[in-house]
Design a protein around this nucleic acid. Structure first.
Lengths: 206, 206
DNA sequence: GGGGTCATGTAATAGGTTACATGATTCT
DNA sequence: AGAATCATGTAACCTATTACATGACCCC
C-alpha cells in the first residue's frame, strides 16, 4: 500500500505542487516556497532543494524544459512536471491526507523518558512550557486573523488552524499533567519522587 | 540557548537514559528499548543504534567499561555513562520538556498543498482519515486501560495519553474541516471547486 | 542434525545539511 | 567605486538506513 516512494522528502511534494502550476527554475521554486510561507510547514533549505530536484528528475517526475541564459547570470534550468509527476503528486497528497503517518515528535520521546528527571523539576518545566505554548498560540491566532482580514481565502490558512488545534490540545494536556503531579490524591509522585530523593509532601506521618 | 547538540538523534537520548540506570552493551540496549515499547516513541533501528553509540562515545558522553567475551559469542562491549553524559541527559531532557520544538509533520505539509486536490476528493479522504484516527484512538485507549489494569504506574503511560490527546484534537479538527467543505454558507468550495472544474452545488442559478 | 531465528556487529549506500564559490544588482 | 545582498549552483561532509556476515542456541 504505502510502498515507499521513489522520492520521500516532503520538499519534493511541494516542488511537484508548484510545478503543477507552471514550469520554473530551482531558485524561483525556492523563492515561491518562502513567499507563500510554506517553509513553515515543510523543512526547506537551499541545498536540499537542488538535491530533491535531482532526485525527481532521475525518477522521471520532472524534466528539464529549457536551459536559458539571460545576460551573464549562470544558466537557469527550467523544470516542468511530467505526467508521471502529476500522478505522483495526486497520489502522494491523497495518501497523506487520508492516512495518519506514524511520526516521532520530540516531546513524545521526552515524555517516555521523563522519569529520569525529578518531579519537582518537571513541574517547573511544564509550567514554562505552558507559557511557550501560549505565545505560539497567540502568534498563530494573530497570523490567521490578520490574513483573513486581508482577504486571504481560508483554504490557505488551514494548516495554521490545524497547528492551533494541536496547540490547544497540548496546552490542555500539559495542564492536566501539572494537576496530576501536584494533586496529592494521585500516587504519581510517590515512588517517582522517592527515587529522586524527594520527600512526598502528601504522606507525612503514617 | 538551543546550541546544537553534539549528538542530535533522539535515540541517543534514550541510550543516555538507559545507561543512567546501569551499564549495558549495545544489543541489550536495543532489547530493553523494544521491551519497554519505547520504539513506539523513538525511531529505532539496529544500524542507527550502533551509529549513535559511536557518536556518544566520541563526544565523551559514554565510555567502554569492559569488553567481555562469553563463550564463543562475538565480543560484547559494555558502555557506561560518564559525568558529562549524565549532565547532557538532564539538560537535553529538560530542554525538550520545556520548549516546544518546531517540527514538520506530514499532515501539515499536505494541508498546505491541499488545494492541488479537488474538494470532492478531499472530502472523501478526510472522512476516511476520521476512520483511521478512530482506530488509532481505540488502540491507544485500549493499551492505556489494560496497562493500568495490570498495575503499570501511570507515569509510564504518559506519552500514550499525550498521543490520545492529540488524536482527539485531530479528529475534532478533521470534522470541522469536513463541515466547512460541505457547508454551502462558507465560500470555501467556490473558487476551489471551480478551479478543479467542479460545479458548486450552493450557487445554482444566479 | 539441519533449518530457523537470536545475538552481534560491520560495511555499503543513499539522504540531507553546511560550507564554499562566483557573477550580477543595488544602494550609498 | 566599494559594500551588501541577490541569484545560482556545486562540493564536502555528516547522518541514517539497508544490506551483508557469522557463530550460537533451540526446535522438531
Amino acid at each position: 500500500m504505502t510502498g515507499k516512494r521513489k522520492v520521500g522528502n516532503l520538499l519534493a511534494l511541494a516542488v511537484l505542487s508548484y510545478l503543477s502550476q507552471q514550469p520554473m527554475h530551482p531558485y524561483e521554486l525556492g523563492r515561491s516556497l518562502r513567499e507563500h510561507g510554506d517553509d513553515r510547514s515543510i523543512k526547506f533549505n537551499h541545498g536540499s532543494l537542488y538535491m530533491v530536484i535531482g532526485q525527481l528528475a532521475r525518477a522521471g517526475f520532472i524534466t528539464e524544459q529549457e536551459t536559458s541564459r539571460a545576460g551573464q547570470r549562470p544558466e537557469r534550468t527550467v523544470y516542468a512536471l511530467t505526467d508521471a509527476g502529476r500522478a505522483e503528486l495526486r497520489d502522494w497528497l491523497a495518501e497523506l491526507v487520508e492516512q495518519p503517518q506514524h511520526e516521532y515528535p520530540a516531546f513524545v520521546a521526552a515524555l517516555s523518558l521523563i522519569g529520569a528527571l525529578p518531579p519537582r523539576q518537571v513541574l517547573d518545566l511544564l509550567r514554562a512550557r505552558l507559557g511557550h505554548l501560549a505565545r505560539q498560540q497567540a502568534e498563530a491566532r494573530g497570523l490567521v486573523d490578520t490574513s483573513l482580514a486581508e482577504g486571504v481565502p481560508g483554504l490557505f490558512l488551514i494548516e495554521e488552524e490545524y497547528r492551533l488545534a494541536v496547540l490547544d490540545a497540548e496546552s490542555a494536556f500539559t495542564s492536566r499533567v501539572i494537576q496530576r503531579i501536584t494533586d496529592p490524591a494521585t500516587d504519581w509522585t510517590g515512588p517517582w519522587g522517592a527515587f529522586h530523593g524527594e520527600n512526598t509532601p502528601t504522606t507525612q506521618g503514617e
